[in-house]
């Protein structure tokens, strides 16, 4: 039963939870979640990279799991829960321990990859409060960073994890300033 199909560009309207608050938005049906977030909701913290699932800079949490927003159709988040880097701060408005640790250790240079790393690491620490270096590497294996060489990023996740466990973790001076 063949039928003449129409390609629709007319906007569609969906409702979902964005960073803990109800959100409604209208957009063209073929837009990705990445495009909807950046272009229709003006949340530009989520970065636009390879667009093909290879770099991880567009990672966001959907129903608390990290996914690549460049490979998610906006329409498919209807009724679900989306968290972007703009929603990472704690209830009292202070930075998430991961954000603080990234800043303390210089785990961001140009910062382009940082939102994707932060959100992916956030979920890791929620399911594993004491990850090994290998756990961290595996969880972050889909995120590319062209600046830091990754070591500072792994150290920052370890530092944040320690602080979140309530351990008094100080940043050694040489990590920040180099060896004297």
């Amino acid at each position: 039963m063949a039928k003449k199909l129409k390609r629709k560009t007319q906007k569609v309207h969906i409702a979902f939870t964005l960073n803990g608050e109800p959100c409604e938005v209208a957009f063209a049906p073929h837009k990705t979640l990445l495009e909807v977030l950046r272009e229709d909701l003006n949340l530009t913290g989520t970065k636009h990279g390879c667009e093909l699932g290879e770099c991880g800079t567009c990672a966001v949490l959907v129903d608390r799991k990290p996914v690549l927003s460049c490979l998610v159709l906006g329409l498919t988040v209807e009724g679900r829960e989306v968290t972007t880097v703009e929603g990472m701060q704690l209830a009292d408005g202070s930075l998430h321990p991961l954000q603080t640790a990234f800043a303390d250790l210089g785990a961001a240079q140009c910062g382009y990859c940082t939102p994707g790393f932060l959100l992916t690491a956030k979920e890791l620490l929620e399911k594993n409060s004491k990850p090994t270096r290998d756990d961290i590497k595996e969880a972050l294996s889909g995120n590319l960073c062209r600046c830091t060489g990754y070591i500072k990023i792994y150290e920052a996740v370890e530092l944040a994890a320690a602080r979140m466990r309530g351990e008094a973790a100080e940043v050694p001076e040489e990590v920040v300033l180099g060896l004297k």
Partner: peptide, 8 residues
């Protein structure tokens, strides 16, 4: 693939 892709 990578963990984010396996989630999807």
């Amino acid at each position: 693939a990578a963990p984010q892709i396996r989630n999807q």
